[in-house]
Computed example of a mutant assay.
Amino acid sequence: MNDHSSRPHHSPDRTTEPVVRRIVTLRSRHRLGPVQIVGRLGMAASTVHAVLVRCRINRLSRIDRVTGEPLRRYEHPHPGSLLHVDVTKFGNIPDGGGWRFVGRKQGDRNREATAKRTGARHAHYEPNVGTAVLHTVIEAGRPSPG
C-alpha cells in the first residue's frame, strides 16, 4: 500500500516528434490555428490543440509576430529589482494660453503676466515661462501572479 505516481510509464499513442515539429512549424511560420493545421496534416483537432498547449504556443498572442518564436518574458526575484524610468520635458503654457492658441500678441501678454506672477525672467529680463520635467518610474520586473 505504498504511494506511487499514477502517471503511465510509457505512452504508446503519444504524438511522434516529427509530427510535433511539423505542427509547431505550421503554427509559428504560417500562424495557422488548430483547424487549419488539421486540414493540412489530416489528424484530430484535439490532438493538434493538445500539442500546441504542451509547447505553450496555443495562443497566437504568445508568439512574436516578426520571428515566429515564443515570447520569452523576464522576471526578477524580488520587487524593485528592475525599474523603468522615463523622463519627458514639457513646455509650460502661460496663464490664459500660449501664442499658438490665442495669437502672437495675446500670447506675449499672457507670457508677460505669468512671468510677472512667478518672477521668472531670463538674464536679459525677458519673460521666462520655462519647462516642466515629468519623471515616470515603472516597476517592470514584477513576477506575474499564478
Rank of each mutant, 00 (worst) to 15 (best):
M1I: 00
M1K: 11
N2S: 15
D3H: 15
D3L: 15
S5W: 08
S6A: 14
P8W: 10
H10S: 06
D13M: 12
R14I: 04
E17G: 02
P18E: 02
V19E: 10
V20C: 07
R21C: 04
R21T: 06
L26S: 01
L26K: 05
R27M: 00
G33K: 05
V35M: 12
Q36L: 07
Q36A: 11
I37V: 06
V38L: 02
G39D: 14
G39V: 08
R40P: 03
R40Y: 11
L41R: 00
G42E: 01
M43N: 07
A45M: 12
A45T: 13
A45Y: 00
S46F: 00
T47C: 05
V48N: 04
H49V: 06
A50Q: 14
L52C: 06
R56Y: 05
I57A: 05
N58C: 11
R59G: 09
L60S: 13
S61R: 09
R65Q: 11
T67E: 08
T67H: 07
P70V: 05
P70A: 05
P70S: 06
E75T: 04
H76V: 10
H76E: 07
H76K: 02
L82F: 11
H84Q: 10
H84Y: 14
V85A: 10
K89H: 11
F90K: 13
F90N: 11
F90M: 14
N92D: 07
I93C: 13
I93F: 05
P94Q: 04
P94D: 06
G97D: 02
W99G: 07
R100S: 04
F101H: 15
V102Q: 02
G103N: 03
G103P: 00
R104M: 07
R104Y: 10
D108A: 14
R109P: 00
N110K: 14
R111N: 07
E112V: 07
T114M: 07
T114V: 03
T114E: 09
T118K: 04
E126R: 12
P127Y: 04
V129Q: 02
V129I: 15
G130W: 01
T131D: 10
A132N: 08
A132K: 10
V133L: 00
L134M: 15
H135M: 11
H135G: 08
I138V: 07
I138F: 11
E139Q: 04
E139S: 08
G141W: 01
S144W: 12
S144K: 09
